[in-house]
Design a protein around this nucleic acid. Structure first.
Lengths: 185, 185
DNA sequence: CCGGTTTGAGACATTGATGTCTCAAATTGC
DNA sequence: GCAATTTGAGACATCAATGTCTCAAACCGG
């Protein structure tokens, strides 16, 4: 006897849930399934039909965030580029996903796939920082952990600036590169 | 007939609760009263005896955070100082309170006193940014909102660096000033 | 040492969110 | 237009966290 047919959600419904969940949970990590459903414009039963538990939903969104971020980073051509140009390209690709960074920071899920994905991002960032130091765009005296932390925060503050409307995406990218390398003087 | 005697908590107990609540709620904004009590080394009944509700506790901690931050900023002598020195002094005073910044960011409470206190901090920061621009430490082309956002995030990442142990408090202060003004090159 | 006060443990009631289920309505593709 | 499928609303059960209360134990200042 076959297992009960698993629910197949419509792609547009799933996208609405993912975007709504990121928005609502970034604002309040304790938001209820009801709040997420309302914001997504779907019924709460639809969430429960597709995700086994609230934790399952948060994990699934976390995995989606990591996949989106890794896809954005992977999509860049890096061969032969100067480190500072790779930094600029990375910011250009990743700043629009700043809300996903924030989601992963505030809605931690003890999920192997999220941990692995985050580790991939970290490795990529550390390699970039080593090259920035090698090419003189970042001083060798600066702890790499500090540089990585600054890059992380710049992604988020730049995303916020674009969301608030006082910077365009291009302006945000340039200001992020400038802030990290030569500062605001 | 007089009202029932209000519970008077011991100062050491209250401090333990405040510090534990900041630590636990920074890690997980949805942490339970039980988790806070365990971390504080007190009984859950003690929390309920002193705070009417969980929301009341979160509000009270938020007010404490704002008061601590405003006290730190107010304690500085600023008359006659260059803007960059005021920036350095502000970082030195406020970085140890980075966990309080974070608390206010992630555990927003719709409380008039928290809003007012935050407004005071913001006014102070904007005035400092104007002076930094006036004295050439920050370019006039940079949006003030961007500079304020960077200062905010530097407080948090510097606090984290000290907590993680790869920077001393003095190193964190200097690196924060450097990152904002001349960058990491 | 003692009186007054605070506190912790645990029992218990309440509450709100989650999770399950059913059925009519809506949607979609042919 | 119809069949197959997904979805929303709402009823209902479950569960975990909150909130209340009592009493013995612990604490502290005089």
């Amino acid at each position: 006897m076959s297992a009960p047919r698993r629910h197949v959600i419509r792609p547009a419904t799933l996208e609405a849930i993912v975007e709504a969940a990121i928005r609502v949970l970034n604002a309040n990590a304790g938001a209820t399934m009801s709040e997420i459903a309302v914001q997504a414009g779907v019924g709460r039963a639809t969430l429960h039909r597709h995700f086994r538990t609230r934790d399952d939903l948060v994990s699934a969104i976390g995995i989606r965030c990591i996949e989106d971020m890794n896809a954005a980073v992977r999509a860049q051509a890096t061969a032969g580029q100067r480190a500072v140009d790779r930094l600029r390209n990375m910011f250009r690709a990743v700043i629009p996903l700043g809300d996903r960074y924030s989601f992963l920071g505030t809605n931690y899920t003890d999920d192997r796939r999220v941990d692995e994905g985050y580790g991939t991002q970290l490795e990529w960032a550390v390699a970039l920082v080593e090259d920035l130091k090698e090419q003189g765009d970042v001083g060798r005296d600066v702890p790499s952990a500090w540089v990585v932390a600054q890059i992380d925060q710049l992604v988020w503050t730049a995303w916020n600036a674009v969301a608030e409307g006082y910077l365009s995406a291009d302006e945000a990218t340039e200001l992020a590169v400038r802030t990290l390398t030569v500062g605001l003087r």
